[in-house]
């Protein structure tokens, strides 16, 4: 413990000098970034820039090659870190929802409550119904995921993650797989969360969302964290050439 690095302070999630490569292909180079408590940080950048890999490193779904990740006072990259316990404190929402198709909507939400948190079945059920109600899907508890639209599935996935009462929520292109008319319901839920003070890291191609809902926007390219600033500065007065090029393509 004497050699342990200094614990961070205000950051909900702190990343220092994170690198990751697949074979000879380096996808993350020396990333250092803080996600502050209560802030919404949007990660933007061209595809292949490493945004999704960075997000998946944050809860160790991808193992970083070097660098450190701190969740509050807990170092996730320490050799004997309890990764499962840390993941229970970090919610994640995936591009393709990844609901469990063999379980009812309600059981999707209660599975981790009962089998990770050890909550009783009835209490878990009440929690699930409350969380489903909060995303407008209280009447869908007994359905199977396949009986829901993509937008509804993604809102269930958000309810599933929130039911664990995470300290941080990670969104990995949560609206990219949705039909355009279904995007806005999911974005509305995410906006509510952001304004409710949840700490969020959001990989997104929705520049409108990044502009309105983000406290800060980080621009990634070629595995580097190229820019990080307020949405106004990123979108209105970008001076990084790659960022200007990227914005001219997506806006």
């Amino acid at each position: 413990m004497s050699a342990a690095p200094q614990a961070p302070t205000a950051a909900a999630l702190r990343v220092t000098a994170l690198s990751k490569s697949y074979g000879g292909n380096t996808v993350l180079r020396d990333i250092t970034i803080d996600i502050r408590r209560g802030e919404t940080l949007c990660l933007i950048g061209p595809s292949g820039s490493g945004k999704s890999t960075l997000l998946k490193c944050l809860n160790l779904l991808e193992a970083p090659d070097s660098g450190e990740i701190w969740l509050g006072e807990t170092c996730l990259t320490a050799p004997r870190a309890d990764v499962d316990a840390a993941r229970a404190r970090i919610g994640m929402v995936f591009q393709h929802f990844n609901l469990f198709p063999h379980l009812s909507v309600e059981r999707n939400v209660t599975l981790a409550l009962t089998s990770v948190k050890g909550m009783g079945r009835e209490q878990a059920r009440q929690t699930a119904l409350r969380r489903l109600d909060a995303v407008g899907l209280a009447g869908f508890a007994d359905r199977r995921p396949a009986q829901l639209s993509g937008g509804q599935q993604q809102r269930v996935a958000i309810a599933r993650a929130l039911a664990m009462e995470p300290e941080v929520m990670l969104f990995d292109e949560a609206t990219s797989a949705l039909d355009p008319e279904l995007v806005k319901d999911v974005l509305a839920v995410m906006r509510d969360l952001a304004s409710g003070g949840m700490t969020m890291a959001v990989v997104t191609h929705e520049m409108g969302f990044a502009r309105e809902a983000a406290d800060r926007v980080a621009f990634m390219c070629d595995g580097h964290l190229a820019e990080i600033d307020t949405p106004d500065r990123i979108f209105e007065s970008a001076d990084h050439p790659r960022l200007r090029q990227f914005l001219s393509q997506v806006l």
Binding site: D84, R87, M92, F94, A157
Partner: peptide, 20 residues
């Protein structure tokens, strides 16, 4: 993605395999 989703909720590898 099913294993990833289960692990992201804090399930251990064995629990994620067994339940999901």
């Amino acid at each position: 993605g099913q294993l990833q989703a289960a692990r992201s909720l804090g399930l251990s590898y064995l629990k994620a395999m067994r339940l999901v």
